[in-house]
Amino acid sequence: MTTPGLPLWVTVPGTLLLVAGGLLAMIGALGLVRLRDFPSRMHAPTIGTTLGSGCVLVTSMLVSSAMLGRPVAHELLITLFVVVTAPITAMLLMRAAVYRDAIRKRSRR
């Protein structure tokens, strides 16, 4: 479980990024529990998915580049995929919520 002798240019930014990413993802999930209505809750996990995963992916790139002694960038694929797909799920969920709320209001009247 021990990664032997990572150079300083990995550990210093890596430590900062991991602490920030972990905290951001946790705050995002906390917002999922704490915020009051659904549209507001949509915003909270976005912190984790964009900035949180960004931090972890950059650290992962740094660590594997240092381990293998050559630039490794395949984490960029995950970043790209997450960035491209997150809006689609958010938009569909938001539209579903608006639609379902409208139906519920109509049936209550």
Partner: peptide, 12 residues
């Protein structure tokens, strides 16, 4: 510094 990095990884 390596130990601190491992700690940060655990924390995350």
């Amino acid at each position: 510094m390596n130990a601190i990095f491992q700690g940060a990884a655990w924390f995350a």
